[in-house]
């Protein structure tokens, strides 16, 4: 059976790549934000799962170090089993798509501000179908007229240095209990609880350590009894503007006890229980930002930003 080789070889290739991944010049990790490159860190739909008539708010976490970012948002409903990457490209016409108001088009312009809201039309789902998906596409540019500056990039689905393209999937369902975004409670910096929104002062020239605490109230996947399991894996990604981190991503495991207490515990991977260390660039003083972005595996996302002052 040719199947065997066909399946085995990509895996072997991947393993070979892993062997050699540390060869050559190292790349900057995605979590190490720099002053000369803009980067999207996450797009959030609040809530991540909607039903007919529900209102959705979409925003994003963006690192835009120079100038001002200008936004262009699209909503796209796949009409032909398109995937998220190709939805806008395959439906874009000659002009900017119509706004997402009134009669709903399968592709519409949702806004040009950093956030937008949208109310899902009360469309009944076909019988037997519980959920469908639609997509949010964000285009960022330094140009105030994003459409004019990035029309070619949008049509070709090919981002440029000044036209960043990002995507987000939103679930449309008729479930009574819908998925919620997870929540981050707070940072712990140098073993002290940091109050969200307040900068923490740390010693310049020294490493600072931090942890992140997940707010169990956001773990609807566990409290929702319609789910079939009592555990969930979540991904936490870290970003910083002032140096390097020991870890840029962690996998978290949250479990709800089945002994009647329904107590929830969340832990990072075994190897990652130790505090994460931030090592600022040489002679760094002043403000430093650390973003923690948490994702569940159902499209939920949240983030929390902690400011550090190296003095």
């Amino acid at each position: 059976m040719h199947t065997k080789l066909q399946i085995a070889m990509p895996i072997v290739m991947a393993i070979v790549f892993l062997f050699n991944a540390n060869c050559g010049d190292d790349f900057r990790p995605a979590g190490q934000l720099v002053d000369d490159e803009a980067q999207v860190l996450g797009i959030r739909a609040e809530p991540p799962e909607v039903g007919g008539g529900d209102t959705l708010t979409v925003d994003s976490l963006v690192h835009w170090p120079q100038g001002e970012a200008h936004y262009l948002w699209f909503l796209c409903i796949p009409t032909n089993l398109e995937q998220v990457q190709s939805c806008v490209k395959s439906q874009i016409g000659d002009a900017l798509p119509p706004p997402c108001e009134g009669a709903m088009a399968t592709l519409c312009t949702a806004g040009t501000d950093p956030t937008f809201t949208w109310t899902a039309p009360p469309i009944p789902l076909p019988e037997g179908v519980t959920e469908v998906f639609f997509f949010v596409q964000q285009v960022l540019s330094s140009s105030p007229d994003v459409w004019a500056a990035c029309e070619k990039a949008i049509r070709n689905n090919l981002p440029t240095a000044d036209c960043l393209i990002s995507l987000k999937t939103v679930t449309f369902s008729n479930r009574e209990i819908k998925n919620l975004n997870p929540l981050i409670s707070h940072f712990v910096v140098n073993e002290a609880i940091a109050t969200p929104g307040e900068a923490v002062v740390v010693t310049a020239g020294e490493k600072a350590s931090f942890n992140v605490v997940i707010d169990h109230a956001g773990l609807d996947e566990l409290t929702d009894e319609s789910t079939s399991t009592n555990f969930i894996f979540m991904d936490m990604d870290f970003f910083t503007t002032c140096g390097t981190l020991d870890r840029y991503d962690e996998q978290w495991y949250c479990e709800m006890a089945l002994d009647g207490t329904r107590e929830i515990t969340c832990v990072a991977d075994d190897d990652e229980e130790a505090p994460n260390n931030i090592k600022p660039r040489k002679d760094w003083t002043g403000e430093c930002v650390v973003h923690a972005v948490l994702r569940d595996n159902l499209g939920g996302i949240t983030w929390l930003t902690q400011e550090l002052s190296f003095m």
């Binding site: 996450g42 090919l158 990002s166 995507l167 987000k168």
Partner: peptide
């Protein structure tokens, strides 16, 4: 020749 950011997976396509 470029990458599109997928917020669901925090990966570039």
């Amino acid at each position: 020749i470029g990458g599109i950011y997928d917020s669901d997976s925090n990966r570039y396509q």
